[in-house]
Design a protein around this nucleic acid. Structure first.
Lengths: 235, 235
DNA sequence: CAGTATCCGATGCGATACTG
DNA sequence: CAGTATCGCATCGGATACTG
């Protein structure tokens, strides 16, 4: 962990960049800002990051006063929590995400979407609804993904949402049949989900009283409401 | 220059971080946003960056659509200019600087201030005034800096401000006698300049009609108006 | 669950020297 | 002024295996 100044400038931008510019750090902050507190939860949000590096980064953030490492109720349950200064990084993280959503071309990013990451992201923003049974179980069948990774289950229970990659003989209420690229696009707000339902590139199979609410309980990315620039202007 | 995706996430934050997180890139954007267009001007804003690396970064930014490289009026005069997407990064750069100004402890950053960088920064924000003669020449004498780097001249002429490190037998109007740490602090808004004038830790020597305007023509950092958190809360 | 230790290859980047 | 080419070290970080 490198805490010494690389830039040698008193400029606050330089001082902030000293650690915000480190590989993975912004993404870790995103996870924390979205509410993850456990090591494994954070790790699932940055699946390509090695756990040892995540460990180092978390230590650095503790040392810098961005997060606290707390051992709640003994039992090795560690909680990472943003300090007030860490919480104040929200606008920084958000402005960078907003710029990306507005200006960046999407094509490169959907070439190799990590299935696990997408599902974990969906779990995070899925919306429990009182109109749904308890539990309410949704199976995602990603029809263009290799077999052993193509099925995922979202379990709505007691106002929480869990994610599972293994079939536990669930009593599935709704099946979502869609390609991973299409799912990414509609969930990110890059394409209109109503249109995708119309042309059946995404299909919700189950009782109509549940499928007609799909657009709500599925949720969407927290930047989905930010409009992309027209294709010709993107970079 | 690495344009391939390191994070493998469609998340716009990850996509943006792919290049905004690169060493020096945010500082280069700061220079461009503040109006530098030439290679050497940009380079003076990032004095510890090697020129070959700056060259590479600029190329990358061109490739990504953040800046344009234009050869104005032939004659090898190259201008780097932000595209619309590049300009839109202003809020990102600013939010990061703002967070740093608000939350970061200043002590580490003033331990080893680069004199050249500070003077270049001051030049950028100095304010030409109609009440001043033309030219108006200010000598900075940094009384705690080694002799061959302690004197700098700011030349206000025709609504432009130039900086010089060599004594050209100037007709100096005002001499500023101050330590580099104190100058940094007041210029960054970390300490009150009026107070520093009172206790004579900064001294303006010259005709009173010019020295009494010093607080104005000296200017201050573009984040100086952002209040720091009380010392106890800083990190 | 929440990490740590070690290994080792890739590459980032600073230094230096050179060009039109 | 505006770069480019080359060298070589340092460190970053991924992979793997192990721990309480």
């Amino acid at each position: 962990m490198n805490l010494k100044s690389q830039y040698g400038q008193y400029c606050p931008l330089a001082m902030s960049s000293e650690f915000l510019g480190n590989r993975w750090t912004m993404l870790i902050l995103r996870e924390l800002l979205f509410g993850s507190t456990g090591f494994n939860d954070i790790s699932r949000g940055v699946p390509r990051m090695s756990r040892s590096l995540l460990s180092n980064r978390l230590k650095e953030l503790v040392k810098r006063g961005i997060i606290l490492r707390q051992n709640k109720q003994g039992r090795g349950q560690i909680h990472y929590q943003l300090t007030e200064a860490g919480l104040a990084l929200g606008p920084v993280v958000f402005s960078m995400a907003q710029w990306g959503q507005e200006w960046l071309d999407i094509e490169p990013s959907i070439e190799s979407v990590d299935v696990g990451f997408l599902m974990w992201d969906i779990r995070r923003n899925a919306v429990p609804m009182k109109e749904l049974p308890n539990p309410f179980i949704v199976e995602f069948f990603l029809n263009d993904v290799e077999k052993n990774k193509s099925s995922h289950w979202l379990v709505f229970e007691d106002d929480k949402v869990d994610l599972c990659h293994i079939n536990h003989d669930f009593d599935v209420d709704v099946i979502v049949d869609v390609s991973i690229k299409k799912l990414t696009k509609v969930w990110m707000g890059w394409e209109d989900i109503e249109q995708a339902i119309m042309d059946e590139s995404i299909q919700f199979k189950g009782l109509e009283k549940y499928t007609k609410l799909a657009v709500t309980w599925l949720g969407h990315s927290s930047v989905a409401q930010i409009k992309k620039r027209p294709k010709s202007q993107r970079i």
